[in-house]
């Protein structure tokens, strides 16, 4: 029996007001893929992620999540999202790291939620996986940018997600943190079969890690295996000559 792609874009066009952000986008992400979403600033990468999550509604075409139109999709426990930043990081949000990661365990209206204390085993595991166990009682606003990013990633680890979307998760993260993230993503994909879609500007690294690449600059410029992307494709995408330098993982 054929299995539905995890995510499908069918001729999707979307714009903010009169300006078109993405136009005529069509591609499908298969189960277990690690897709890197790359393109210059303002090319529509974040818009594509928002469309994939139903946070924006296409003006033309449609987006399918696990074979279902995203606006009608309700099995959100199968999806995790790591945004670039969140509202709470810009205000003095009174929640601890442990509390914020526990939010990911949401399963609908729960009259006992206000009484619940302590961390579940899944939350403890997620805290340890991202190296934030020691900071579990610290307020989220007291963390550095890199630590806040790790908290958002930990949320994605709490439930056995099937699709993980990350929007520039390594912005503000040091080299060690970046390597720790990619190692975590490799484990999630290889051991648990998680499908990953990652937006990044670090072209060299993501092409090394990803299995497929979506190159976008308002329109889809390339979609295929990461190893097939050439310097010429990237030069066409970014508008200037690009030399790919791959990082070694010895």
């Amino acid at each position: 029996m054929p299995v539905d792609p995890v995510l499908t874009f069918e001729d999707v066009t979307f714009g903010y007001g009169p300006s078109v952000a993405v136009e005529g986008i069509s591609f499908a992400v298969e189960r277990g893929d690690f897709v890197a979403l790359i393109g210059p600033n303002g090319s529509g990468k974040t818009t594509l992620v928002k469309l994939a999550l139903g946070l924006e509604r296409p003006q033309r075409g449609r987006v399918l999540l696990f074979g279902q139109e995203v606006q009608r999709f309700c099995q959100w426990h199968r999806v995790s999202y790591v945004p670039q930043s969140v509202n709470a990081f810009t205000v003095r949000f009174p929640a601890t790291v442990g509390e914020v990661i526990s939010y990911a365990e949401y399963r609908g209206i729960d009259p006992l939620a206000i009484l619940r204390r302590g961390l579940s085993p899944a939350v403890r595991q997620a805290l340890q996986a991202v190296g934030m166990w020691e900071q579990r009682g610290q307020l989220i606003g007291e963390l550095s940018g890199g630590q806040q990013q790790r908290v958002l990633i930990a949320r994605a680890l709490v439930h056995r997600t099937e699709l993980l979307l990350l929007d520039e998760p390594t912005a503000g993260v040091d080299v060690a943190g970046e390597e720790r993230l990619y190692s975590l993503l490799r484990d999630m994909r290889q051991q648990h079969g998680v499908t990953i879609i990652l937006v990044s500007h670090d072209v060299g690294v993501v092409l090394h890690e990803a299995t497929k690449v979506v190159c976008i600059n308002r329109k889809l410029r390339f979609y295929g295996a990461a190893r097939e992307v050439t310097d010429a494709d990237l030069a066409h995408l970014y508008g200037f000559p690009v030399d790919l330098v791959f990082h070694r993982h010895d």
């Binding site: 999550l53 139903g54 946070l55 309700c74 945004p83 969140v86 914020v100 990911a104 609908g108």
Partner: peptide, 12 residues
């Protein structure tokens, strides 16, 4: 309140 987009993706 934490983040409306993240909340929507969690099914809120």
């Amino acid at each position: 309140t934490f983040d409306p987009d993240l909340a929507r993706v969690s099914g809120v």
